[in-house]
Write a protein that binds this DNA or RNA. Structure first.
Length: 535
RNA sequence: GCGACUGUAGCUCAGUUGGUUAGAGCGUCGGAUUGUGGCUCCGAAGGUCGGUGGUUCGAGUCCACCCAGUCGUACCA
């Protein structure tokens, strides 16, 4: 073998293999999400992984960098195709293409893999799964309110508790109105508006001071002058910056107005502080969204657009509150921005509020696990009439990592029993062993005959690795007597912990019984029953 | 993309001012035990020291470039 020629087995970076336990856990999680979406009256639809590039609403790839952000290639008729990078654009294409046939408003859900050609990081892959729900053809903010409630209900259906998550809501109209109010209207300020939105979006990570720098001259990577790269700011003047921060950083103002919020600052967005008071007094919670909205109204009454956006948010806040969703679950947050491309109205973001140590002992915050918003322009790109639409997307992989961290029961125990393994003691008698397996399978018992070529000891190790609850042993002595030995591996392992002498351990054959072949199925059932009822 | 740091066995890591044949633990495989997974003991396999070039009598160690990874930052539909 020319070892120099041997191909190295390797996985492209940003992609992962998934094994048995992960797939099973993911299936359970997907089933729980699906059930929740169905409960809200959404119906499934599936679209392919590949679309025409222009249908994805993205520029056509240019010659130099055809794969910037998106995996793209040319068909044999030279048309550009791309792997989808979200599920919203394909849904818009599907809705438009089948507009006449669909019930309107069209409520649909779907899950699937999406692809992004970017630098991967921890919890960030180039292929990942999203699970979306959308309402196409409903202009009312009642649709947005329903999406928010669905997000909250879905997270709880997955085992998250009240206070471990919050659905934050904002409105693009408010953001645009605020920028209008500080004199950033008009095409000539489009670049500045983009910079401002990006700056606001970073409030979580960089804090108020970081945002202040980004709104003004700019910010160094490390926070101090000369450290790392310099990010050019939006170049606003002092007065403009003050108004933006006033808008975005509402926490100190609320704390002043209402002593009940004195620890809100520390409790990051209120959600954690609120849950601490759970049971004591929830009175202030429904007021909180109202106060935030009033504060925006007071400061930006000079923008009709901002006021319109506030009204929409108020409708969402009131209708969700009436339905029983307080600000501990659905919270108005002026700093939510989301994607810059196509949102036109309300935007939402589902955020996890708890922190968990990872295997290295570092504290990890999962942050955003889903989001969405209203995209009134997306479907109508394909149609002569305007089509309003709203929806949201769950990042399945990241949310699953979070559920794993809090040991959500939805993912299951993870140590499911493997198959019963029938050992091959006598290689010439495989037909007889196969017959035993067939008996077990006919009885509905997951089982297999050992198919390797090793001796008994490796077969026992194999059964161990397969998490077999028990093995069936039949050598020539047993076969002549018409019996099998059944060894309970789980009980055996438990008994072994009390035995230190190897001879004793081998000779005592713990947890092993001999039964006639005719009773094998029942004996195995008894063993299985012992362990299935435990989980 | 920019910046900092890190690359030694499958994994976690040691390796002295540059000095002979690069080590340990865990894991894997084999034996003690021809028919019993654990424990214990014994043994074995496993390394282009990330790559290329340079300095040197001599490089895992020093230098340059490249590659990969981690963190921060930018971008993120």
């Amino acid at each position: 073998m020319a070892s120099g020629q041997q191909l190295k087995a390797r996985l492209p970076r940003g992609f992962i293999d998934r094994t048995s336990d992960e797939i099973k856990a993911a299936e359970k999680m997907l089933a729980a999400i699906r059930a929740q979406y169905e409960l809200y009256g959404f119906e499934p639809v599936e679209t392919p992984l590949i679309e025409y590039t222009d249908a994805l609403g993205k520029f056509l790839p240019d010659q130099d960098r055809p794969n910037e952000g998106v995996f793209s290639f040319q068909d044999d008729d030279e048309q550009w195709l791309s792997l989808r990078y979200d599920l919203t654009a394909p849904l818009a294409r599907f809705s438009a293409e089948n507009w006449d046939k669909l019930p309107k408003p069209y409520r649909s859900y779907r899950n699937g893999w999406v692809f992004r050609n970017e630098k991967p990081g921890p919890g960030r892959f180039r292929q990942f799964m999203q699970f979306d729900a959308d309402i196409v053809g409903a202009p009312s903010v009642a649709a947005d309110a329903e999406i928010c409630m669905l997000m909250a209900d879905t997270l709880e259906a997955l085992g998250l508790k009240r206070g471990q998550y919050v659905v934050k809501v904002n409105n693009r109209k408010v953001l645009d109105g605020v920028m209008e109010a500080i004199g950033l209207a008009g095409d000539e300020n489009a670049g500045k508006r983009l910079s401002v939105l990006r700056a606001i979006d970073k409030l979580d990570r960089l804090g108020v001071e970081g945002v202040r720098l980004l709104l003004g001259a700019g910010r160094w990577d490390g926070g101090a002058v000369g450290s790392g790269d310099f990010t050019k700011g939006a170049g606003l003047d002092e007065g403009q910056i003050k108004r933006i921060l006033q808008y975005v950083d509402w926490k100190p103002q609320l704390a002043l107005q209402n002593s009940a919020f004195s620890d809100v600052d520390r409790a990051e967005y209120g959600a954690k502080g609120i849950i601490k008071r759970d049971g004591e007094s929830l009175d202030h919670i429904p007021i909180m969204n109202e106060e935030i909205l009033e504060s925006i109204e007071r400061h930006f009454s000079d923008s009709a657009l901002a006021i319109e956006g506030v009204e929409e948010l108020r409708t969402i806040a009131r209708s969700t509150r009436t339905a029983g969703y307080g600000a501990d679950r659905i919270l108005i947050d002026p700093s939510v921005v989301r994607g810059l491309e196509y949102y036109t109205g309300p935007v939402y973001e589902a955020e996890l509020t708890f922190e968990v140590p990872n295997e290295d002992g570092q504290i990890v915050r999962f942050g955003s696990v889903g989001g969405g918003g209203r995209y009134d322009g997306l479907v109508s790109r394909f149609l002569p009439e305007p089509v309003p639409a709203t929806g949201f997307s769950i990042g399945v992989s990241r949310l699953m990592a979070a559920l794993k961290a809090i040991k959500s029961p939805i993912l299951g125990t993870g140590d499911a029993l493997g198959p019963v393994v029938v050992l091959v003691m006598d290689r010439g008698e495989t037909a007889a062993y196969q017959a035993l397996v067939t008996d077990l399978r006919r009885a509905g018992i997951k089982s297999e005959m050992y198919l390797g070529s090793s001796g008994m000891k490796p077969q026992m190790k194999y059964a161990d690795r397969r998490k077999a609850p028990c093995v069936i042993i039949q050598g020539s002595n047993e076969r002549d007597a018409g019996v099998v030995q059944i060894k309970d591996l789980i009980e055996g392992a438990r008994l072994a912990s009390g035995i230190t002498d190897n001879k004793e351990w081998r000779e005592s054959r713990p947890a092993q019984v001999t039964v006639p072949v005719a009773e094998m199925v029942q004996a195995v059932r008894d063993i299985l029953a012992r362990y299935q009822s435990e989980t």
